[in-house]
Amino acid sequence: MADPEIKSYEPYHESRSAAVTESRPAQAVLMAIAFAFLGIFLLLPLIIVFHEALAKGVGAYTQALGEPDARSAIRLTLLVAAISVPLNVVFGISAAWAIAKFEFKGKAFLTTLIDLPFSVSPVISGLVYVLLFGAQGLLGEWLKGHGIQILFAVPGIVLATVFVTFPFVARELIPLMQEQGNGDEEAALSLGANGWQTFWYVTLPNVKWGLLYGVLLCNARAMGEFGAVSVVSGHIRGLTNTMPLHVEILYNEYNAVGAFAVASLLAGLALVTLVLKTLLEMRYGAELAATRGH
């Protein structure tokens, strides 16, 4: 590959004398093991998704995706992501502003709390809402009395999705805004801008690529979440089935083409996410917090 990026690394490589790198054969062996491992564990699962989806031809594939239940699952997944991602974007920006721009007591503790959903099993993330809103739940009676349906309905699915995708935007923006400091904002304010103008014209342009990066990861998880959503959804076909849940139902019915057809859309989403993520890292690496090993 005639990539200028790779060329520029060449001197670094040449300058390594034999004593500080492995011998050529050892390098070849290590690389072969690493590639074999990645091929078996990452590449094959990806290939088999598309292979199985198209196992009975393109006709069967498009037909599987045209099924009303598949279509409603796609619609619900898009709806859930369209609600939960913006919610977490607003939270992420707000939390990053408070944490990065100000010094206050308990800041480290708050940052730890934001990461909490990452260390909770997805099943437990769903369970907590069942305990809260379920028939035997704390608010179950009250909700029933008022005819409000949260569990086994769209609100419950959105809540569970918001829970598992909660930290994505915040944890990208907080270190980024901390690194950028307050200088730009203070300059804008001293020149007469109000708080909102400062945020809109100074802070937001400074963090836009980091924000996009966080949104990308948040969205991928929101559309792909399985465990948490599975617990709260009730698996009602055509009503509360998201795409990952629909994949499970079809698979358990031995409808391999149907299951892998829907799965291929999710795999496509994962690939698009990875490509965009890599492009962002290559082009705007200096403006992202995630690429600096925070």
Binding site: L42, V247, A270, T278
Partner: peptide, 21 residues
């Protein structure tokens, strides 16, 4: 670069898809 990007596949691929694959 492609190999490097691929390492993140398990982060991006929904778990149910990984499971059936």
């Amino acid at each position: 670069r492609i190999v490097d990007a691929m390492v993140d596949l398990p982060f991006a691929l929904p778990t149910a898809v990984a499971g059936i694959a």
